Amino acid sequence: MDDTITIRCTTAIDGCQYTCTMPVPRALWDDSSEEWRSEFLDTCRDRTAVYVRHETGVELTEQQTAGIAVALDRDEESEVLARLVTVTLFGGPLDGETVAVDLADPEPGIGIIAAGCSYPGGRSWYEPGADGRWAWKHDIPWGKCDG
């Protein structure tokens, strides 16, 4: 059994989706009260908004900040989460990191804000190859939505 769970926060800004993940020790989560969990998820939402603002250089509106969705990478949370699998990223600025992806997503790929991206505030684009490895393809400038 894995000793961590992953909190995944996503938001859409100007039609582009941004995703951040944060691990939390499973024992801490399992032993916490509902109130603590709720406050932790609110903190994750706020941290994601700050992270997106910092990485993109764009001030999010209150509506955009409120629109950040927080989900737990646990099978019992929803059908979508049940489809998520953790993959390891190869190449690019996020080499070796893991991220949860939905294999049923019609667009195979994910753009993730990365400090090492060649575009300030941009995202690094990863796609699955024929061998199943999620490899870096290129970086995406701020404001461009697809890979």
Score class of each variant (00 low, 15 high):
residue 3 D to E: 14
residue 4 T to W: 08
residue 4 T to V: 14
residue 5 I to R: 07
residue 6 T to D: 03
residue 7 I to G: 01
residue 7 I to D: 00
residue 9 C to A: 14
residue 9 C to K: 03
residue 10 T to L: 08
residue 10 T to M: 10
residue 10 T to K: 09
residue 11 T to F: 00
residue 12 A to M: 12
residue 12 A to Q: 13
residue 13 I to V: 15
residue 13 I to A: 01
residue 15 G to V: 01
residue 15 G to F: 02
residue 16 C to H: 05
residue 18 Y to G: 02
residue 19 T to M: 11
residue 21 T to Y: 07
residue 21 T to G: 10
residue 22 M to W: 12
residue 23 P to Y: 05
residue 23 P to L: 06
residue 26 R to W: 09
residue 26 R to Q: 11
residue 26 R to C: 05
residue 28 L to I: 14
residue 29 W to K: 06
residue 30 D to Q: 15
residue 31 D to K: 11
residue 31 D to I: 05
residue 31 D to Q: 13
residue 32 S to M: 07
residue 32 S to L: 09
residue 32 S to F: 06
residue 33 S to E: 10
residue 33 S to T: 15
residue 33 S to H: 05
residue 34 E to C: 07
residue 35 E to I: 14
residue 36 W to G: 07
residue 36 W to F: 15
residue 39 E to M: 13
residue 39 E to V: 09
residue 39 E to N: 14
residue 40 F to G: 01
residue 40 F to M: 14
residue 42 D to K: 11
residue 45 R to K: 15
residue 46 D to Q: 15
residue 46 D to T: 15
residue 47 R to T: 10
residue 47 R to D: 14
residue 48 T to W: 01
residue 49 A to I: 06
residue 50 V to R: 12
residue 50 V to A: 13
residue 50 V to I: 15
residue 51 Y to P: 00
residue 54 H to G: 12
residue 54 H to M: 14
residue 56 T to M: 04
residue 56 T to G: 01
residue 57 G to V: 05
residue 58 V to C: 06
residue 59 E to R: 11
residue 59 E to G: 09
residue 62 E to I: 09
residue 63 Q to T: 14
residue 64 Q to K: 07
residue 64 Q to H: 08
residue 65 T to A: 15
residue 65 T to L: 11
residue 66 A to Y: 07
residue 66 A to P: 01
residue 66 A to T: 10
residue 67 G to F: 03
residue 67 G to P: 01
residue 68 I to T: 04
residue 68 I to M: 06
residue 70 V to I: 15
residue 71 A to S: 13
residue 71 A to G: 10
residue 72 L to F: 11
residue 75 D to N: 13
residue 78 S to M: 10
residue 78 S to G: 12
residue 78 S to P: 06
residue 78 S to I: 08
residue 79 E to K: 12
residue 80 V to Y: 13
residue 81 L to N: 14
residue 81 L to R: 15
residue 82 A to T: 12
residue 83 R to W: 10
residue 85 V to T: 14
residue 86 T to Q: 14
residue 87 V to W: 02
residue 87 V to F: 03
residue 87 V to R: 04
residue 89 L to Q: 04
residue 90 F to P: 00
residue 91 G to K: 03
residue 91 G to M: 06
residue 94 L to W: 04
residue 94 L to V: 08
residue 94 L to F: 08
residue 95 D to P: 04
residue 96 G to R: 10
residue 97 E to Q: 14
residue 99 V to M: 10
residue 101 V to C: 05
residue 101 V to P: 00
residue 101 V to D: 01
residue 101 V to E: 01
residue 102 D to L: 08
residue 104 A to V: 08
residue 104 A to M: 12
residue 105 D to C: 09
residue 106 P to W: 07
residue 107 E to I: 09
residue 107 E to G: 05
residue 109 G to I: 00
residue 110 I to C: 02
residue 111 G to A: 11
residue 111 G to M: 02
residue 111 G to N: 07
residue 112 I to G: 00
residue 114 A to E: 00
residue 115 A to V: 13
residue 118 S to R: 14
residue 119 Y to C: 04
residue 119 Y to P: 01
residue 120 P to R: 11
residue 121 G to A: 08
residue 123 R to F: 02
residue 125 W to C: 00
residue 125 W to Y: 12
residue 126 Y to M: 05
residue 126 Y to C: 03
residue 127 E to F: 03
residue 132 G to C: 11
residue 134 W to H: 02
residue 135 A to L: 14
residue 136 W to R: 02
residue 137 K to N: 09
residue 138 H to K: 12
residue 138 H to V: 06
residue 141 P to T: 04
residue 143 G to D: 04
residue 144 K to H: 07
residue 145 C to H: 06
residue 146 D to G: 05
residue 146 D to E: 13
residue 147 G to W: 00
residue 147 G to D: 01
